[in-house]
Design a protein around this nucleic acid. Sequence first.
DNA 1: GGTTTCATGTAACTAGTTACATGATTTA
DNA 2: TAAATCATGTAACTAGTTACATGAAACC
Lengths: 179, 179
Amino acid sequence: MALEHAILVSLMEQSASGYELARRFDRSIGHFWNASHQQIYRTLKRMHRDGWVDLEHISQESRPDKKVYTTSSVGSDELREWISTETTGSNSRVELVLKLRGASYGDISSVREQFEHHRDAATQRLDVYRRIEKHDFPDPTRLSARGVHQHLVLTAGLRIEEGFIAWCSEVLDALAPQT
Amino acid sequence: MALEHAILVSLMEQSASGYELARRFDRSIGHFWNASHQQIYRTLKRMHRDGWVDLEHISQESRPDKKVYTTSSVGSDELREWISTETTGSNSRVELVLKLRGASYGDISSVREQFEHHRDAATQRLDVYRRIEKHDFPDPTRLSARGVHQHLVLTAGLRIEEGFIAWCSEVLDALAPQT
DNA sequence: GGTTTCATGTAACTAGTTACATGATTTA
DNA sequence: TAAATCATGTAACTAGTTACATGAAACC
């Protein structure tokens, strides 16, 4: 899972209450990730129990009290570790984006390697899709209605992989170690 | 939810056992959707209970018996209805792909409208991202390490929206009513 | 003799969503 | 005076993952 890690990255940038984190997830991070306030409160509680975050109670006049969370040293160790761990599973692209965002809190060369790996995997996938296209849709101008729809679905796969590979190249260019 | 509907689309194309469906999800559909066999068996059971699918027990020699499921009339009504229902929520792009794949089993003009709507929404999002880029990264050549990372994350958003909009245009061109 | 394929499932767990609950203050 | 903002939570549910279980046949 990575909601914990998304929260850690966000807290590294700036300490926050659960409410404030929920708002951040609705804005910047939330463009590609979303988490409800219920999820965030629940997760913060667990993270505090596990010592990943420190907690400060803040009383306010004319506003409800709030609990401000800060990444602890255990938390930042955990984040650093997670950033260097190979990214697998169905959510991997979103996690890669998150690792990029938090790259300064971990080992950048490891992030680079992970991007290389996922770019290569995407290139192979793209190749598979192109073979499928050649095999199943040799003449895309002559297709039944259902054939057209199926071909468009395959096109989605092609476009997604192409886009991802291009973006990986941008990332790798920008993360290139300055020699 | 839409796993039910993904199964319905798959069964409309060809009746299958839970095992066979799981394999299909690992291949074609599974490039952008994945479902474990446990999930599929559980969901098929519920769909059968609700009358969305019919069931035929098939005994085989030298192979375990299997249960072959077929979309019932209730199921195809449900699918038709779902295809015409507005697509919302965090999973909407995957659902749109699925509706495209099953478009022949529902109302194509409604699918068209949904694609138009989502293309327009993506165009607005893209515009928001471009404004953010102008505002937060006026000079992308002069950025701190963290600034570079944050900018690349924004770039991911830009590329995803651009790609999605381009693909929607392909879809809309292909689905255009022949006049 | 070991792995893959066919074929079905249960049980326990983690993650995420929806609905409900409270209550003051500020803004339209 | 109604809605939005700030601020926290509980409870119940749905969806998805991981681990365990069985057992024959085909393939390498």
